[in-house]
Structures are given as structure tokens and as C-alpha cells.
Amino acid sequence: MEPKTIQPYTQRTLEADRPFSAKQFFLQWEWLLAFILIGVIALNTSLSPYFLNISSLRDATMVFLDKAFIVFPMALIMIMRDIDISVGSTVALSSVVMAVAYNSLGVPMGAAVVICLIVGALCGLMNGLLIVKFKELSAVIITLATMILYRGIAYIILEDQASGSFPEWFGFFGWGYVYGIPFILILFILAALLFGLLLHKTTFGRHIYAIGHNDVASRFSGVNVDRTKVIVFTLAGLMAAVTAIFLASRMGSTRPNIANMYELDVIAMAALGGISTAGGKGRLIGTVIAVFIVGYLQYGLGLINIPSQTLLIVVGALLLFAVIVPKLNIPRFKK
């Protein structure tokens, strides 16, 4: 292979400066993901007559996109070599507060939605602040504790009750269409674009990669590591609240035990998308494709009524496959 002397870090951030090479372009992780996605769709089409039509493909996105909003900030966090396992609990807590604000405190629904976003952001902010204040504790520890804590608070607020009876229009989030396109899909694409721009086109994004590669060095080169981390964790909380809104809308109610173990699904999708928990690597487009791979795979296999235990194995195998392939000695085919 051609000699390669550039460091991975520069290779990543200075991608635009490199001469375009078709061979390299097509040997990227994202292309493999795209192939897998096509394979999944082909597989599903061959297995179920109900899979390949517009309305089925479209409605499927409404089923699996809710948790996908968290994948973006999770990708950012993982690029910074951290992890956040409290997002599922944040979803539960923010949706519970929203429902209680609307039902018990008489807050109008619009304001309750805003409160939901604020609560989510606050949960994330608290994670972020604790993580930068206690640097000797890794993010896993902090978010493990807040994971139990946030869900605990949700239980204290609502006990075992469900809270629902939201106004009619609230159902639009989870069930509505705009010009025949699910609203959730539109918002997902919008979020993908925003996060893509943030990560790949701004200084902030470069800082995230820099921190992931070497946070000490970044600190000395003038990156405000603490601020960046706090912002990213707050974003994670915020997007968890977005998920909470869609989930509550789809279920027409909420309760403290919703979104259980969502964090693991989200981490799995981010990892499949080529985000390395070793930090510093990965691009957002990969996670977008990964979301659709996992979503359509589960949906399609559901259409032929695969037992859910088999589905567990398939998703596990897919995840392993995704992380092992780049390790097989294929030069350059690295994430």
C-alpha cells in the first residue's frame, strides 16, 4: 500500500486537504455501512412481501427513530472518550416532569414541552458539571449514579402511576405527517444536519476530536476542555428530552419505567456507526446509517415474526461484525 505517514488525528481533521482519491473514498467505513443497509433492505424484501413499499418504509421510521435522537450527542461524547449511561433515565425523568406539569400543575402543554426540554438539559448539565469537577471519576461512574438517581426521582414524582391525557395536538409529534413524511423523520434529518455541521464544520467540533485524541494536549493548546464537555453532556440531556417528547407522544402517556436500557441501544448504534469509544474517531453520517440499519433490520425481521430472542442475537452479531471487520487486516479500511 502507499506509504502513509500522516497521523490519524490529522488525517481525520484535515480530510478536506487531502487529494481526492476514489479508491480511498469508497473504502470508507460509511460505504460498508451503506452496503449493509442495502443488504438489510434486500434481505427484508425477500423475506416479507409487506416490507418494500413506501408506506411501510416510512411508518417504520416512526417506530425506531425516537431513541435515535440521542445517538448524535452520544457520538460526540464517545468521540471525547466518555460515555453517558444516564440518558434512558433522563428520558424517563423529563417526560414524567412534563406530564406532571401538564396534568397536576395546570401548565399549558406547550410550556410543559419546554419544561421537558429544560429538565433534560439540566440533567445533562449536572452530569457535565460533575464530570469536569471530579476529573478523577470517569463519566461511567458519574452517569451510573445519576442513572439510578434520575429514574429514582421519576419514581418519587409519579410513583407507579401513568400520567397522560395530553391534548390532541401533542400526538402529532409521534404520529403526525407533514406532506406525507413523518414529522419525526423530518426532525431527525434536521437534527442530523445540525449535529453534522456542529461536529464537522465548526471549531467546536474540532475541539471535540482534539479532546478525544488527547485532552491534556488540547488543554495546553487552548481548548476549553471543561466547557466543551459540559456543553456536549447538556446536549445529550436535551436530546434525551426530545426523545422523551416523541415517546410520550407515541404512548399518549408516560410513566417512570419508560425508556429502560435505552442507553445500551444508543451506544450500540453509535458504535455500529463507526464511533470508537477509544475516542477521536468516527463521523456522524455513519451513525445515521447505523440507525437505519438497526431500525430496518428489527422492523423487517419483525414483519416475518422472528421471535424477539433471535432478534437479540442478530443485533448482537451485527454489532460484533461491525467492530471486528475494521480489525481484520484490511489496510486502510479503518474507521
Binding site: A271, S276, Q309, L312, I313, G316, L320, K327
Partner: peptide, 27 residues
């Protein structure tokens, strides 16, 4: 083996195997 030989990150490897072992158990 996954972690040492193939260099898969522990959290990912064990997450995947968690799904797979659990699926095996149900089966």
C-alpha cells in the same frame, strides 16, 4: 478473545455478547 486478540473495546464486545448470550438463554 474478542478483547485481546481482535482488540474490540470491552464495552462493545460485552454489550454484543450480552445480547447474544441472553438470546441463547431464551432459546
Amino acid at each position: 478473545g474478542l478483547v485481546a486478540w481482535l482488540g474490540v473495546l470491552p464495552i462493545i464486545a460485552t454489550l454484543a455478547m450480552m445480547n447474544i448470550y441472553r438470546g441463547f438463554t431464551y432459546m
